[in-house]
Design a protein around this nucleic acid. Structure first.
Lengths: 232, 232
DNA sequence: CTATAAACATGATAAAAGTCATATTTTAAG
DNA sequence: CTTAAAATATGACTTTTATCATGTTTATAG
């Protein structure tokens, strides 16, 4: 990770996507003074599970995966985070070490915000606290839904859902390929299956003309069918 | 559900287990004036997924299951809630309809607290907001861990873990049987498997002398082995 | 550009889990 | 107490998914 300092939070449009929008001008100024920007290259770690975090990370651009090592030695990706998402909030608030690791999926810029600015504002500005709460409530709902999917849907359905989610969250390029390009192994780690199983399903989807691929890039070509398959 | 009113929140020891502990005397008084106590019999619904909630439910005693219907028609139990847990918080805060249903696992008493008391306090008392946040952060961590278990562990491991969790959270009676007695189907719905598969694993656990049963009641007789199996 | 590793792909097989059928036991209603 | 319904149990079989082996393609370092 490389440090630098260039943009002021007050001018930063990205904060509209997260709870920082509820901070006052003065609070934001303090945060901005204390923050630092870091460049994280693809595959580099932003923080590791078990680590004590001294602040939160706001993603300026790029995508990070939040994952945890299971006792069977496999990594499970719990969530993909992108522009505007705050990482490490949960750990800072509950004053526990990080439950998940955050690793850059592609080259990424993050702002590191020391926890003091966050905690002080939390304890004095109810608007901010409620806004953080709203985001956490949303995350919790999403997590509950992932539990349902993991336990009740087949690997094929989960991969279909993952593709629809990725397309919806990260968009497509001019040729229709999804902007986010994950390895087969990463996709397997999102849906919680073996890499080979994941590859097999992708091959099947290609054969059935639900998707097409070009290297790591994937394009959905029959969204309706993929959606039907997902819902079964 | 039957309504009544008898106990004051100010005198209620249960609030020490949840975010209401961070309310001031006056705030608590208001909540207490507006709350109502309801008795919910085993199997009765406290609220259903999709319902708009006008407040939160604080469990006085008994156990409730929080579940959601999957598109394949099966119920997935996401969480068991017991004395002191607040239900419906997430929906009230994010002003969305309930994502989960809450159903009494045994005869239960809950206090219904209209959302106004909660939201007003949230918007004016940062201590309370932070306390709610802390609880939600904890729930989120738990949910993430459930995702890992669901995707990476076998049915046998998940059932072993469920038993250890149940014993730890709800305790045992004088004969060593767990105080909470779930049906095989409910256990299956917690670990996300077919009822028959769940029954088979329980039979195997009995044969291997890891547990013993008496009707619905289950007692762990070899915790160490169960724990080893869970971690694999 | 070439060597080497990593990622992708696919077959063969095994293991895990689901489904369907059918008893047996337990529980609850009358 | 009896009877019907629900829950538990188990066998037989199918489907899904994991694992291991091996080949092919694609990326990357030098």
């Amino acid at each position: 990770m490389v440090d630098e300092a260039e943009v002021r939070c007050e001018q930063c449009a990205i904060r509209q996507f997260n709870a920082l929008r509820a901070m006052s001008k003065e609070e934001l100024k303090k945060v901005s003074d204390s923050k630092s920007i870091k460049r994280v290259k693809k595959g580099e770690t932003i923080f590791k599970e078990g680590e004590k975090l001294n602040g939160v990370f706001c993603i300026r651009n790029g995508v990070a995966k939040l994952s945890k090592l299971s006792s069977n030695g496999k990594d499970q990706i719990v969530k993909l985070a992108t522009k505007g998402n705050l990482l490490g909030q949960r750990s800072v608030i509950s004053e526990e070490s990080a439950n998940l690791s955050a690793i850059a999926v592609n080259d990424t810029q993050v702002c590191f915000i020391p926890k003091e600015g966050i905690m002080n504002t939390l304890n004095t500005n109810p608007n901010f606290a409620v806004e953080v709460l709203r985001h956490m409530a949303h995350d919790l709902k999403e997590a509950d839904d992932v539990i349902i999917n993991m336990s009740q849907k087949s690997v094929k359905q989960r991969i279909a859902e993952a593709f629809l989610y990725m397309q919806n969250s990260f968009g497509v390029d001019h040729e229709g390929f999804m902007s986010i390009a994950l390895s087969r192994e990463e996709i397997a780690n999102i849906v919680g299956t073996a890499t080979e199983s994941c590859i097999r399903v992708i091959s099947e989807f290609k054969k059935d003309k639900l998707i097409k691929t070009s290297g790591k890039k994937i394009a959905i070509i029959n969204e309706a069918a993929l959606r039907a398959l997902m819902e079964k």
